[in-house]
């Protein structure tokens, strides 16, 4: 179950990336005005999201 959840998480991250780049790309300019590139924004967001996911997975495993 956990490997399936992990790959589903990767899939949803890809969907988020596509949707934001397609429908919300104008918002990038807010962050560009503070010197932040798309690369930096995505690296930090996805890394934080993935770490949170792993933390929840570990918590769920310990609570089972």
């Amino acid at each position: 179950m956990y490997p399936m959840l992990f790959w589903f998480k990767i899939f949803t991250m890809g969907v988020s990336f596509y949707l934001i780049n397609d429908y919300r790309k104008q918002i990038y300019f807010y962050f560009h005005n503070f010197g932040l590139s798309k690369k930096v924004l995505w690296i930090f967001s996805l890394l934080f999201d993935l770490l949170l996911f792993f933390a929840m997975m570990i918590l769920a495993y310990n609570l089972r």
Binding site: Q26, I27, Y28, F29, Y30, H32, N33, F34, G35, S37
Partner: peptide, 20 residues
Amino acid sequence: FDIYKQPHLMRYLPQHYFIP
């Protein structure tokens, strides 16, 4: 090359709405 990374040098108001 990427002057937007230096906000103390340049800022840009795009044509469209940009604030979340």
